[in-house]
Design a protein around this nucleic acid. Structure first.
Ligand SMILES: [Mn+2]
Ligand SMILES: [Mn+2]
Ligand SMILES: [Mn+2]
Ligand SMILES: [Mn+2]
Lengths: 218, 218
DNA sequence: ACTTATTTTTAGGCAAAACTAAATATTTTT
DNA sequence: AAAAATATTTAGTTTTGCCTAAAAATAAGT
């Protein structure tokens, strides 16, 4: 048996583990809005359950079983977000909190039927890839941040780095939504802000925004 | 704030409260598969929160706020069951446990959008009425148990008393599903079992089954 | 009315999941 | 290399929601 809390920790470790490096106690505390001491407690428990590799003062990383659980939660989270946007007409900035609850509903049958009902989507409303039934993620698109794209190169918006409601609402207002073709017209030396071409118009955006928009470059 | 556990208790009190009489400690313990002492603990808490009227040794009943919460949970439970059956093609005997979890998802927006997505259904897959946005239940159909129907009177199956998977599977196998027209051909004196006409055929069913099938008599 | 059976409550305990405050390790700076 | 800063762990506490065992109240049977 597994608690929702344990699932959230495993998901957080997954999210914070960059290539070969695990997640630190403080990074987890920050990500989960909890105190570091609570993280230490839980890491011991997850280690006892065989889901996490944990050594004092050295952070935590997922082992095979833990990674499978984390991916199953990510799968559910993204499928439910897709349901909320595609079927219930929620906006892309309104679904995260609800999916944070729905991801803990226990029923494999439910997830797989939901997947089929949605037409086996490959990406969620924020452009994040949805793991398949076997928890495999396939995303062969070449990606980079809009802030790193060369002038006059046409790229396609495929995601966001930070999916805070503030950013999502801003992008929606400017009609910088997933799938839009876009190119950088000019980079202003003063503040590295960009002038971009999108929807047949030109538009200025800050460096900060450009650093949070993911584009496909192939 | 409200826990899932508190919501389940309020729903149980609602389910066990027959006209003017509240629910007893033991009845609640049985319904929720818990020990009587746990019920006493929780009734004190629910009383402190102002959702339940509780007097020692005299059972519990819902007050205005508690009833509204109970009805909101019932509404969610039945809407999710309807979603699972109508949209995800679950069978009517497979949805209860999943809805038992989904009913605790917190988001008014979600419930109301789900309601619209389903076409504002009036009844769930087991024939139970779904409270509307204002938690009103309207069901003007005259109902009785199949075991009490007079011979040769045509009635329509509209629900079940006990919705255990065993009964639901049995009824499905015999094609005694919601909406079917049915009449009692004969009552066998020996064991009060019934011979019924349904789907252009005749069929024997036990008194026990007949006592658990609800029919519309108008 | 009194004894017995049943129901309900009280008292005490436990595990989960968070917290604060203090102690200890590790990392960074001088 | 020592001092200072930062990160992490330990120890002890709290709340929630359940449990068992024992006591007390209520209901039922004779
Ligand atoms: Mn979550
Ligand atoms: Mn997402
Ligand atoms: Mn429930
Ligand atoms: Mn139902």
């Amino acid at each position: 048996m597994r608690t929702s809390s344990e699932e959230d920790y495993l998901k957080a470790i997954y999210a914070l583990s960059n290539n070969n490096e695990g997640a630190s106690t403080n990074a987890l505390a920050n990500h989960l809005s909890m105190k570091a001491s609570s993280i230490t407690d839980m890491l011991k428990k997850l280690s006892d359950k065989g889901w996490v590799h944990y050594e004092k003062y050295k952070g935590a990383s997922l082992n095979i079983d833990g990674k499978a659980i984390a991916l199953s939660i990510v799968r559910k989270h993204r499928l439910w977000e897709t349901f909320l946007v595609n079927k219930l007409n929620f906006k892309w900035d309104e679904v995260h909190e609800i999916a944070e609850q729905l991801e803990h509903i226990k029923s494999n049958e439910l997830v797989d039927r939901l997947d089929d009902f949605l037409g086996n989507p490959k990406f969620d409303p924020h452009g994040d890839p949805i793991p398949n039934k076997d928890y495999e993620i396939t995303d062969s698109r070449k990606r980079s941040y809009l802030s790193e794209v060369k002038i006059n190169r046409e790229v396609i918006i495929i995601g966001v780095k930070d999916s805070s409601a503030q950013l999502l609402q801003y992008l929606e207002k400017e009609n910088m939504i997933l799938g839009k073709h876009i190119s950088v017209v000019e980079i202003h030396d003063f503040d590295k802000s960009l002038r971009i071409a999108i929807n047949g118009k030109e538009l200025n955006i800050s460096e900060r925004v450009a650093q949070n928009v993911l584009v496909q470059t192939n």
